[in-house]
Computed example of a mutant assay.
Amino acid sequence: MRCIFCRIESSGSRSVEHILPESLGNSKLVLPKGVVCDKCNNYFAKAVEKPFLEADAVRQMRFHEGLPSKKGRVPSIIGLLDPDVPVQLFRDAKDGSLSAAVPTEHFSRLAARPEGRLLMPMGGALPSGAVLSRFLAKVAAESMAARLIHDAGLLEQFIDDPQLDPLRNHARRGQPMDWSVHVRRIYSSNARTLGADGSWRQVMHESDFLVTPGQEIYFAQAIFGVEFAINIGGPDVDGYLAWLDANNQASPLYAPKNLELYEMPAKP
């Protein structure tokens, strides 16, 4: 077995690879040991996944959805006690309860108020630039490998395919530096779908590949309603924009499948 990124012999690797980080609620999209070697696995966790997870919008999303890290902690965020007292907000990973830490220099102002409103940020800047594109390139390459994992011959072809080297190199080494990603929200973060067993399920993440009429391959990944699309073969998304225009801006994730999405009721 060889690593799909660096191509070294990886049969002795001891770590499975999560295509999406566990910190985004992923427990099932996992590649077996050795598909990504331990060295690349550790590198991605520190240099590619962590910057993405620490982006304001992702950190706030993880806080509001109560998504813990591998260590079982939901990330904290900074809120305000109306109008201008900053507080650090914490969410318990087990029961979802909230707590707040107030800087000592604001104790007297807080004590002087009989009541006040707690304001929590709901937006924040989405990841951009190389932080986003390297993360998505990594997820795209691993998602392709996941489709080939049961055919050793096809997986070997995938590993040796020079046409995928730019994608691999961008994910693993940040080269080339610039790689465009198309980003848009396609449904609410609280969207849900009806499962085969009749139960409602929140759409946490979903992905698929799109082959355009120009024979370009794009990978689309939605995370809590935000769709990210990347060109597998090169650093532009012109073909994806053309496909969107020709298909009334429909998402390749669900337009062919007629996935019905509904708003989840507000959390109490």
Rank of each mutant, 00 (worst) to 15 (best):
141 A>S: 09
214 G>D: 15
260 E>V: 08
34 G>R: 07
122 M>C: 09
257 K>S: 02
107 F>E: 09
201 R>I: 15
178 D>I: 07
125 A>N: 07
114 P>W: 12
159 I>S: 00
91 R>M: 04
219 F>W: 04
225 G>C: 14
183 V>N: 06
91 R>L: 11
33 K>R: 15
103 P>C: 12
76 S>A: 12
68 P>A: 00
81 L>I: 15
156 E>M: 07
239 G>T: 00
124 G>H: 00
202 Q>D: 11
54 E>V: 08
254 Y>P: 08
15 S>P: 02
119 L>I: 09
121 P>T: 01
182 H>L: 07
89 L>P: 06
220 A>L: 05
112 A>Y: 06
127 P>W: 04
244 L>S: 03
222 A>M: 04
90 F>P: 13
256 P>E: 01
192 R>L: 13
226 V>N: 05
13 S>D: 12
47 A>C: 08
249 Q>L: 11
194 L>T: 06
88 Q>S: 08
221 Q>I: 07
28 K>Q: 07
59 R>I: 10
192 R>Y: 01
41 N>H: 02
164 L>G: 04
119 L>N: 12
37 C>Y: 10
107 F>S: 10
250 A>M: 11
10 S>I: 07
27 S>M: 04
114 P>E: 15
202 Q>M: 05
170 H>M: 02
4 I>L: 04
47 A>D: 14
41 N>Y: 06
178 D>A: 14
131 V>H: 02
59 R>Y: 10
148 L>E: 06
19 I>R: 05
128 S>G: 13
127 P>M: 01
225 G>W: 03
133 S>N: 10
229 A>E: 12
133 S>L: 02
55 A>W: 04
188 S>E: 03
238 D>V: 07
73 R>G: 02
116 G>N: 14
237 V>S: 06
121 P>W: 05
38 D>G: 09
65 E>R: 13
132 L>S: 05
165 D>A: 13
26 N>P: 04
169 N>Q: 12
83 P>I: 05
140 A>G: 03
88 Q>V: 15
265 P>V: 15
121 P>L: 08
91 R>S: 03
242 A>M: 12
4 I>M: 01
114 P>T: 15
215 Q>V: 01
140 A>I: 03
148 L>A: 00
187 Y>F: 15
133 S>A: 08
22 E>S: 13
253 L>P: 03
105 E>T: 15
137 A>D: 02
33 K>D: 01
240 Y>M: 00
98 L>Y: 10
51 P>F: 09
214 G>R: 13
138 K>Y: 08
220 A>N: 04
31 L>K: 14
231 N>K: 05
18 H>E: 08
173 R>W: 02
4 I>K: 03
135 F>W: 10
101 A>C: 05
152 A>K: 04
163 Q>L: 09
140 A>F: 07
153 G>Q: 04
61 M>P: 14
196 A>T: 03
124 G>P: 14
241 L>I: 14
30 V>T: 00
74 V>T: 01
146 A>F: 04
110 L>D: 09
81 L>M: 05
200 W>N: 14
130 A>R: 13
181 V>M: 06
135 F>V: 00
172 R>E: 11
37 C>P: 00
176 P>T: 05
218 Y>G: 00
144 M>E: 11
174 G>R: 14
134 R>P: 11
161 D>Y: 11
